[in-house]
């Protein structure tokens, strides 16, 4: 939701970044305020996923210029785990399997690391159990999933639901969902979307990275950005996504070119 004069949660200015010496982001600008849902769309290789990894601080991605301010703090100075604890959450496109580590233990340690960061007392196994059971409802997950190893043997849909469960527990200030819709059937997509909508509130913000308009039928964005060549080409509301679906990315590229010529 767009709220007038709400706080700026994330401000990205002229961001450039590379992987293995290859520039991927080329001057990206974005401002996200509390309560807003932003969708970033764009063709393969446009830099969407790179942007999400850079926000989360993946060590393979080098920032070469520009700045990212998150809640008034220079994000680029923080280690990945510090970013996570201060409220940045990345729902992975391909959630990893962690054999031998139970989902319940993983969730509890993650939950407690955030509590510690906020100066709160850690929850013991019993108290945490109550918290986690409540959150299972949001993503319609069975408690069997808690006893299993993290994502091991989970279906694609179960992995994505597990990501949203983690989001529900960690209550991030900014959640970045990297192609959370990919590989989901329509039922799983609805469950995931309902979960995200349930968690969305005037205090937090969400960035949805997606290829398809379909997800945006269920999670309605306030802004839609189209990315190409490592920067944002154009920004609109959810109608832009529908138009993209109809006319393809080439249309945006042409529009962009005409704009440049006109200037």
């Amino acid at each position: 939701m767009i709220i007038e004069n709400s706080d700026v949660v994330l401000s990205v200015c002229d961001l450039t970044a590379e992987v293995d010496g290859i520039p991927i982001l080329n001057g990206l600008n974005l401002e996200v305020r509390a309560g807003e849902i932003h969708a970033i769309m764009g063709p393969n290789g446009s830099g969407k996923s790179t942007f999400s990894k850079v926000l989360a601080g993946h060590p393979d991605y080098q920032v070469t210029g520009g700045e990212i301010v998150f809640q008034g703090q220079n994000l680029l100075e923080l280690e990945p785990e510090e970013r996570a604890r201060s409220g940045i959450f990345l729902a992975f496109q391909y959630p990893l399997e962690i054999p031998g580590v139970s989902n319940l233990d993983f969730l509890r340690v993650a939950y407690n690391s955030r509590r510690r960061h906020h100066g709160l007392e850690e929850l013991d196994a019993f108290d945490f159990d109550e918290v986690v059971r409540e959150k299972l409802e949001i993503v319609k997950m069975d408690d069997r999933f808690l006893g299993r190893s993290v994502n091991e043997g989970f279906s694609g849909g179960e992995k994505k639901r597990n990501e949203i469960l983690q989001m529900a527990l960690l209550e991030p200030k900014l959640a970045i969902l990297d192609e959370t819709d990919s590989g989901l059937d329509i039922d799983a997509l609805k469950i995931v979307a309902n979960g995200v909508n349930h968690l969305s509130n005037p205090d937090n913000s969400i960035i949805l990275i997606t290829h398809y308009q379909r997800l945006l039928n269920y999670i309605v964005p306030d802004y839609v950005h189209v990315m190409e060549g490592g920067r944002i080409l154009t920004t609109g509301d959810k109608k832009l996504a529908l138009e993209l679906e109809e006319r393809g990315y080439d249309w945006v590229r042409q529009e962009d070119a005409t704009e440049v010529v006109a200037r």
Partner: peptide, 21 residues
């Protein structure tokens, strides 16, 4: 990185994975 993104330090991550293993 997955652990770190959930706020868990590398030391804790390794020790959890090793204990499980």
């Amino acid at each position: 990185f997955f652990f770190a993104q959930r706020g868990i330090s590398a030391e804790d991550a390794i020790s959890m994975m090793i204990s499980g293993f």
